[in-house]
Amino acid sequence: MTIKSMHHLGITVTDLKGAVAFFVELGMELEGGMHMEGEFVDGVIGLDGSRSEIAMLKTPDERYRIEFSEFETPQSIDGSSHAPINALGLRHVAFVVDDLDDTLARLKPHGAEVVRNIETYQDVLRTCYVRGPEGILIELCEYFD
């Protein structure tokens, strides 16, 4: 038996509205949001008395989703959101964009910062890492036609 598909990636943040605004500006679409609490949720995530707000965003092709969660209780703990790329664990999310320079210009007012450089790999692509809201590390790739 193999998996059928990936449903979503979950990211916990302290500013849900800011994270949603950033990723909508990037080009994702808000699919929906809701308040989460109760025995069912506690049983799934393993935290008693949890209360959170979530927002589900999808890529324009509807193939991928990111669920952002902001916890009211219990209080979120620092998961080393500003760790470098070589730290263990989930480190970055990568997106293909049409125009890297335009994307960076649109994300800058939302706090995006290029980690170091925009690099070109042969005649294939331009790419860079960007720190977004909550220190989320994002790789942006523009492929050459």
Rank of each mutant, 00 (worst) to 15 (best):
M1G: 15
M1Q: 09
T2A: 12
I3P: 02
I3N: 01
K4G: 00
K4D: 02
S5G: 10
S5W: 07
H8E: 03
I11G: 08
I11H: 07
I11W: 04
V13R: 01
T14C: 12
D15A: 11
L16C: 06
L16G: 05
A19R: 01
V20W: 01
V20Q: 08
E25K: 12
E25T: 15
L26T: 04
L26R: 01
G27F: 07
G27W: 10
G27V: 03
E29N: 09
L30E: 00
L30M: 10
L30Q: 08
G32V: 04
G33D: 10
M36V: 15
G38N: 10
G38E: 12
G38Y: 07
E39F: 07
D42H: 03
D42E: 15
V44E: 06
V44N: 07
L47D: 11
L47P: 05
D48W: 06
D48M: 08
G49A: 08
G49H: 06
G49N: 10
S52W: 09
S52L: 15
S52Y: 13
I54H: 09
A55W: 07
D61Q: 05
E62A: 13
E62N: 15
E62K: 15
R63A: 10
Y64K: 06
R65H: 10
I66G: 00
E67H: 03
F68T: 09
F68I: 01
S69F: 15
E70N: 06
T73H: 03
P74I: 13
S76A: 15
D78T: 03
G79H: 12
S80V: 09
S81M: 12
A83S: 13
A83E: 08
P84D: 15
I85C: 01
I85V: 14
L88C: 10
G89E: 09
L90N: 12
L90I: 13
R91F: 04
H92M: 05
V93R: 01
A94E: 12
F95H: 00
V96K: 04
V96M: 07
V97A: 03
D99P: 04
L100C: 04
L100A: 03
D101W: 02
D101L: 05
D102S: 14
T103C: 09
T103D: 05
T103V: 11
L104H: 00
R106W: 02
L107C: 00
L107V: 09
P109I: 01
H110I: 00
G111Q: 02
V114E: 05
V115K: 03
V115L: 09
R116M: 12
R116H: 12
I118C: 02
E119S: 12
E119Q: 09
T120W: 05
Y121C: 06
Y121F: 14
Y121S: 06
Q122C: 08
Q122N: 14
D123L: 11
D123P: 10
L125T: 08
R126T: 10
Y129K: 03
R131P: 01
G132S: 02
E134Q: 13
G135K: 04
G135S: 03
G135V: 07
L137H: 05
I138Y: 02
I138T: 06
L140G: 02
E142I: 04
Y143G: 04
F144W: 04
F144H: 08
